[in-house]
Structures are given as structure tokens and as C-alpha cells.
Design a protein around this nucleic acid. Structure first.
Lengths: 240, 240
DNA sequence: CCCATCGTTCGGCGGTGGCCGAAGTGTGGG
DNA sequence: CCCACACTTCGGCCACCGCCGAACGATGGG
């Protein structure tokens, strides 16, 4: 039995129950790891967080019961991922709140390398972030395809641009077409929402960029540099 | 000494520390109460939550230390309010997440009365919400002053409208001019951000609406009905 | 069929944290 | 000057929760 977040309780109790899910360092680590948008196995998360498998199993049970994670059983593996874009946005927002300035500097060379790759480009749930995400967002804004001065929305030219490039924007449910996501290395908004997700998916499908290892970081390919330069006027060296 | 949220700790630890602040039912109640944007005294919050003054004092200490609340001492009173619009948005987002459909139905007549007044119109931190907020947002959208189809942003005509009505939009720091806030009774986005706050302040200053009692609920005055009808074409009976 | 691997359940341990009442501090009013 | 009031600090109590290891169940490969 699980104490649902939306049951017959006061708003304060439900809010506290939701926050409790993220109020544990191990579970918070799970959520941040899952921000890459992919599905992880229980074991991977346990090792990532440095806890016993049994501990991780209990945590995952709570997160799933609370609606933050979706799970998919495949054979003897339990894959989990963030339940939906709404949850991802919430985790993003929480994460952004606790990194007010530049995040803690990396200590070791290895971390510095990984950090710099992450800073260059990465996925943030289902859209592009890091300098790559910023560069794309800025380019769209500079070309009048996206307007950020009075809010955050695509212009009509912007919608046409997506169609022209061959990136379909399928409006699903309540999710906004364009939305700002605050980057926690660059401290600037970048494109999220349906358009951000579609662009990221296209970039990966069309081989504009590829994932580095098993982490969130992505690397822009030569083909990607050409495409971004031609379509958005982004200088290749901006991304290095 | 306080364990800062942005100290030299891992991201997961900082996220967990932030979430811990809202992970207690009493503190969550404080945050929700403070969503009305006003400053409360420690005693008011203690009575509101039904805990001893000493307990409330400790909770307030944590929330202030964690940066979620700002405090102001006046004589023997300790006034607290949400630290800034960023924190307010975070609490809003969390609250919206835990009320997936219509909130629990009111049980008593008194609650039903208060609930319906709240549903008609209320403040959400510094902007208008409830049916009033929705009506204004929809009217702005219908008149082409606000566009929600490709994101959420004022149009140029929208910016001019604010100037014309005599509501100055002063851009401060990073805060967006317009932003969507998801209403948790109507389940629809309404205008927040600088424009939403300016509009709400103007509505209260110009006596378009007044606060009911000491709660978040607001009531549209006759003058307000005329103004909203004339400026935005909102039918008076929409607001009743 | 056996075994390695992945995950779950259970019992027990220890720390954390929320709660209260009582006592203490400071403020303002009579 | 004294008292009422708002808040804070302290000590103690209790519940909850995260952690682990060990045992158990399930899956898939050899």
C-alpha cells in the first residue's frame, strides 16, 4: 500500500509527501542521474549512488509509488526513468535553485574533463543543454525565430523554420511548444518543451551529435557543425 | 551555523537539503500560506498550522536559513514572507504537481464558501489567479496581446497595451516579462512574471479588486468590472 | 539442469528530526 | 515600573526513516 500524493489529504500533507521523495540524498541522486532522460536499471543507480542494491530497491519503490518514476520490467532488469516531462521540469527547477552561481569546481582532472564535456553540450531530459543548448537558443533568438524579450515563445517564422528543416512539431496534450529551461552551468535559459525535444531528437537521429559514453554529455559531429552553421549560422568554434 | 544549500556539497545533497525544507507538513503549510505574497507573523503561522509557537519558531529558522523565506523584525514581531519570485514559483510548481485533478472537495459549507471565493479570484504570490486570473489571461490572448500557442509571451501589441493602460513594465534582473503559472483549481495557465505582477498591483491600487478578509481571495469591485469590460472585453458575469 | 545475476523482502540498528512544555529574552503598553 | 505578549532556547521524548546483510525469488545463459 502506498500513500498517494493526491489522496484525501490536505495540500500541505501532499506537498510534504512530494518533497519527501526528493529530500533524501540517495533519491535526489537518482533523480539527477535520470535527468539525462534515459532509463537506468536499479543496479546502475545503486552503484551510481554507492548504496546496497536492497537500499536502492526500496528507494525506487517510493519514487515509483509517488509517481515521479515510471518503470518497465524487462526480464530480470527493472528499468526506471522519469515519469514524464512534467516531473523532469520539476527536478530541473529544483536543481537550478540549488546552484545559484557556478557549481562547485571540479577537483580532479578526470572530473574536470567530464565537467568540461558536460559544459560543452549535454541533454537535459529530452532537450539540448550546456553551451550547445545555449548556442542554439541564442541563434534562434537572433534570427527572429524565438522571442525571449517578452516571455518565451516561437515566432511564426520559428514554427516555419522547424517545418522547413523537417522537424515536425506535434502538439501533445498540455505541454507547451516552447518553454525556457534554466541551465545550471550557463545560468541562462535554453529551449525546452515540444520544440526543444523535437530538435534534440532530430539532432541525435540526423547524427548532428552523439552521446559520449554512457553519460549525459553529447559531442557535436562534423556533420552537425555544418548543419548548425548552415541552418542557424552558428560558428563551429563556439561549440568547442 | 547553518548547512547552506549551495555549499561545498554534491548536487544530490544540495537538492535533498532543499527538498527537506518542504518535506515537513508543518513547513509545507507555511509555504502554501505564504503563497499569498504577504508577510505573516510567526504566531499567525503557528496558529494556522496548529503547532506550538516554539515549534513554529524552529521551522521558520530553517526556512530562513535555507533561503526560502525572508524575515523582517518589527518590535516584538517577526514577519516572514517568501524570499523572492523564484521561490514563489518553485512552491507553485510543487503545489501544482500534487493537485493533478480538481482538489479535494470542500466538506463543510464554510469551506465551500471560502473555496468558491478562492476559485473566483485570488492572488498567487504577486499575480492574479483563479477564474479572475484565467479570464484576464484568456482575454489578453483573444485580443492578440498574449500568445500561448507557441510558448508564452506578450506580443508587441501586448506591451503597448500595458503602456497604454498606464501599467509600467519595469524589467528587473532575470525575471521574465511574461510567464505561465499553472492554476491549481482551473488547471490552466495564467499570466505571471513581471507583467502579471504589475497587472495585479495595478488592479489592487486602482481598486479594481480588493482582498477579502485576511485570506488570499480577492473580489472584483464594480469599478473593476467596468475597467475589465472596457479594456479587455471581459463580461462581468464571467467573474461571478 | 545448474548457476550466475538481478532484484526484493525482512529484521535490526542507529541517527535524525519534529514535537512539546518550561524557562528565558526582549518589546511595548498601561 | 510592572505586566502582557511575541518569540526563542533548551531538554527530553518518541517516531520515523535510511542503511545494511542475509535470505529468498526470478530470470536467462551455458
Amino acid at each position: 500500500m502506498t500513500t498517494s500524493l493526491s489522496g484525501a489529504r490536505t495540500g500541505a500533507a501532499r506537498l510534504a509527501a512530494l518533497a519527501s521523495l526528493a529530500a533524501d540524498e540517495t533519491r535526489a541522486g537518482f533523480l539527477l542521474a535520470l535527468l539525462d532522460g534515459r532509463a537506468w536499471t536499479a543496479g546502475e543507480l545503486a552503484r551510481h549512488a554507492g548504496v546496497a542494491a536492497s537500499t536502492a530497491s526500496e528507494h525506487l519503490g517510493k519514487l515509483v509509488a509517488g509517481g515521479l518514476l515510471a518503470e518497465e520490467r524487462q526480464g530480470r532488469h527493472r528499468y526506471v526513468r522519469l515519469a514524464d516531462a512534467r516531473v523532469a521540469q520539476l527536478v530541473e527547477d529544483l536543481a537550478a535553485q540549488v546552484s545559484p552561481t557556478a557549481a562547485a569546481r571540479p577537483r580532479t582532472l578526470r572530473e574536470a574533463g567530464a565537467g568540461s564535456a558536460m559544459a560543452r553540450g549535454r541533454t537535459c531530459y529530452d532537450h539540448l543543454a550546456g553551451r550547445l543548448g545555449i548556442a542554439v537558443t541564442d541563434a534562434l533568438t537572433g534570427l527572429g525565430l524565438l522571442r525571449q524579450d517578452t516571455g518565451f515563445a516561437l515566432t511564426d517564422e520559428g514554427v516555419n523554420w522547424f517545418e522547413g528543416v523537417g522537424i515536425p512539431l506535434v502538439r501533445t496534450g498540455q505541454r507547451p511548444l516552447a518553454r525556457a529551461c534554466l541551465d545550471w552551468t550557463e545560468r541562462r535559459p535554453h529551449l525546452a518543451g515540444i520544440a526543444g525535444a523535437a530538435l534534440c531528437q532530430h539532432a541525435l537521429n540526423a547524427n548532428w551529435c552523439t552521446r559520449i559514453g554512457s553519460e549525459r554529455a553529447v559531442k557535436v559531429t562534423e556533420k552537425g557543425e555544418q548543419a548548425l552553421s548552415q541552418l542557424l549560422g552558428i560558428q563551429a568554434d563556439t561549440l568547442r
